[in-house]
Every structure is written in structure tokens, then in C-alpha cells.
Amino acid sequence: MENREVVIEVKDLVKSFNGRVILNGINLKVYKGETLVIMGGSGCGKSTLLRNMIGTHRPDSGSIFIKGNDITKLNESEFDKIRKIYGMVFQDAALYDSMNVEENISLVLCEHTKLDPDIISIMVKMKLELVGLRGFEKFMPSQLSGGMRRRVGIARALAMDPELVFYDEPTAGLDPIIAGVIDKLILDLSKKLQITSVVVTHDMKSVFAIADRVVMLYDGKIIAEGEMSEIKNSEDPRIKQFITGSPEGPIQFLQSGDGYLDELTK
């Protein structure tokens, strides 16, 4: 395990917003070819962690290495070189509204490569075939359903043949069948194309389907990290509660009654 190539390494990452600490000393490694799932409840900081890894947020302290480059110390143009080796799938796909499916996928190829338009159009067809949407080139994002948009988002993330793909809640808000299709797609891509995947999700069904390794985030800290089987059999009550989805347990979302009366009668 330890001798596998490390693609991403996060060291002592701290990030706060308006004085509220969201991430409090995160240490994390992502190995080549694996699918790492970062799970945790809403507001635990998992999206913030992802945004730090893709560089749209800068951390307060700590460092993030992608293939040995500390991205927290790079300037924009150096970072752009790193950005070309990864793809990102956004929660609601974030397709460019003003462009059709083909333009959405080919934009990055037209901008960053000197390929012939004919070749680019063939590549777009190949990417769409991968996600099962060939023939939809001329559709606008508004004409597609949620699941289709998500799949176009995946095709767009794959446009530059990245070795690393980030997914932000890829199955959120989809019906169970489409969610299953997306899970299978993520699995297929990482096996067929040897892509390293980092998936942020709170959908346990999806975690069981795709994860090689799981990191559980709670209150800005990593409380568990390990192979899927270890997490499944974990004795930690917080993890058990998260997997079963029980409202009763150590993770409290309901406010306790203390001081309630005082506050009402103040």
C-alpha cells in the first residue's frame, strides 16, 4: 500500500471562513489509480476540502501536493499547468449555459491544444460514447435532464484525458436508477482508463458501490480513514451512525433543550 505512487498529499490543512474553522488540520493521501471517497455530513467541510484541492479556495495554512507540486504556493499560470491534468465534475454539472453539449466538451480542447477541428469533433464523440450520450452533440444544457447533464459534465471533465478526476456529490438529487448509472460510470472509468478519482459524497449507497478507500470527515477533522471493509466493520459509533443514517447517536444535529426556556423568555 505505502509504496504506491502518491498523486495528492494534503498536509495540516487549515481553512476558516469569517473566523469559523471549517477544516482543522487535515492530513490525507490519494494513491494512483484508486477511488477515494470523502464522506461526511452536511457542513462537515468536505466540499471546502475539495475546493482547496482544486485550487478555487486557498487554505489558511498547510500544503497540498498534486504530483509533487505544492499547489498552495503556485501562481495562477503555474497552477494552470496542473489544472490540465485533472478534471472536475460539479454537483449540478455546471455546464456552460450558452454553449451546446459539443462546445461544452470541446472548449477546453480548442483552447489548450492545437488539434484540428475534425479531430476535436471525433474526440467529443468518443467522450460522449463513454458516458452513453452520443448523438446529443447539438443539444443545449437546458434541454437535458439532470442525469444527462451530470453525464455531460463527466464527459467534459474527461476531455483532456486527465489522470485525476474530482467529483462533487455526483449522485445528489438523482433518482436511484440514474444514481446507480453514474456510480457504474465512475467505476468503469477508473478501471478502464486507470483514472484516480476523488469523490465527495454523503450518499452511502454510492460509497459502497465505488469506494476503494474512504475518509470520513467530521467537524473539520478526519475521524476515520481506511479500506471500504474496515469502515463497514468499524466500531466507531459516529461512523456506524452515519452508515445507518440514524438520528440517535453521538453526532447531534438536534439542539439540546438546555437554555431553551431562558432564550424564549428573555
Binding site: I54, G55, T56, D80, K81, R83, K84, Y86, G87, M88, F90, Q91, D92, A94, L95, Y96, D97, L107, V108, E111, H112
Partner: peptide, 11 residues
């Protein structure tokens, strides 16, 4: 809708 962020991540 995160499209600006999407542009950034595509360099």
C-alpha cells in the same frame, strides 16, 4: 451555478 469555477478548473 459554479460555471465560473468550472472555467477556472479547466485552466
Amino acid at each position: 451555478t459554479e460555471q465560473v469555477e468550472a472555467l477556472q478548473t479547466q485552466a
